[in-house]
Design a binder for these strands. Sequence first.
DNA 1: TTGACAAATAGGAATCATTCTTATATAGGA
DNA 2: TCCTATATAAGAATGATTCCTATTTGTCAA
Lengths: 143, 143
Amino acid sequence: MMNGTNPMDVFLSKCRQRNLKITPQRTAVFSALADAEDHPSADAVYQKVKKEFPNISFDTVNRTLIVFSEIGLAEVVEGQGDPRRFDPRMENHHHFYCVTCGKITDFFSEELDKIEIPTQIEQDFTVISKRMVLKGYCTDCRK
Amino acid sequence: MMNGTNPMDVFLSKCRQRNLKITPQRTAVFSALADAEDHPSADAVYQKVKKEFPNISFDTVNRTLIVFSEIGLAEVVEGQGDPRRFDPRMENHHHFYCVTCGKITDFFSEELDKIEIPTQIEQDFTVISKRMVLKGYCTDCRK
DNA sequence: TTGACAAATAGGAATCATTCTTATATAGGA
DNA sequence: TCCTATATAAGAATGATTCCTATTTGTCAA
Ligand SMILES: [Mn+2]
Ligand SMILES: [Mn+2]
Ligand SMILES: [Zn+2]
Ligand SMILES: [Zn+2]
C-alpha cells in the first residue's frame, strides 16, 4: 500500500505510530496549524479551529499542539516571553523576528545551513538543532 | 573628566543620558543583573535583590529590567514561552539552549559572527541583531 | 539648604497565558 | 457491538506580567 507524503498522511501515520487516536479535534488542529504561515500561538490556532468546532476548548488545542511538538509534527520556536509560538515547518530554516509587531518570518539559506558549530560546543553538548535568529524591523514596521 | 568603562559607570552614564533617576533600587537591580551569568528571569533577579532590599517589589524589578533592555544595558533573549530572560552581555554572541533544563549557555565564535545575512533579508528588513540559537542537551542533562 | 515637582516606588489588583482536575464522551481494537 | 484506554470540555488553579494609585524620593533651581 502506498503512503502519500502530503501533510495529512504524515499526520495520520505519526498518530498511528504513537497510538494517538485520530479525533476530529486533533485533525482540525493539525490542519489549522499546517495551513498557518505565521507561527501562531496556541490561542491563534484555537481561534481558527473554533470556527469549525465551536465547542472545542482552548485546553484541547494547546495540549494537542504540545503533543505535535513532541512527535515531530511541529516545533516550538523561540519567542520573547510571549506565549509559545508553533512552527509547522520542519525543514531546517531560519527566522527573522520583528521586535515591533512580533511577526516571525521564515527564511532559507544553504549558506547558513552549512555553518560549522564550534568544536567546543559539539563536545560539551548534544546539539539537536541550529537556527539563525535575526531581530529587527519588518517592512510594515520600519517607516 | 574621565569616564570609566566598568559596568557601573556605563550604568550611571546611560541613566544620566536618559534622565533616569539613579535610585538605590535601580542600582541594585543593575548590579544583580550585571553579576548574573545565567540569563535570569525577572523573578530570579527579584529574589537576588530582595536579599538587600527586602521591601522591593517585583514590579519594580521587572519594570527596571525592561527599561534596561530599552536603553541598551541588557537584552531580552529568546525563550520558549517561558518568562522573559535577560542577558546583561551586550557583546555579539550566541546561545545554546538546553531543552531539558532550560539553561542558556553563551558561546562565542568569530566564524559565526562573520556570517552574511542573505541579500533578500537585508533588503526587506532592517536587521538589528543576529544570533545563532542551538538547541539540545547540556552536559548535565544528557546521560 | 530648601522647596517644588517630575519620576519612581510599593503594594495590590487585574490581566493574560498556561496547566491541572474531573466528569463525560469516544476511537478503535476485540 | 462492546470494552476500555484515550481524549475531551469546562472551569478552577496557577504563574507570569502588567496596570493602577497613593506615597516617596532624586534632582535641580532658587
Ligand atoms: Mn519557521
Ligand atoms: Mn547570552
Ligand atoms: Zn513588524
Ligand atoms: Zn540541561
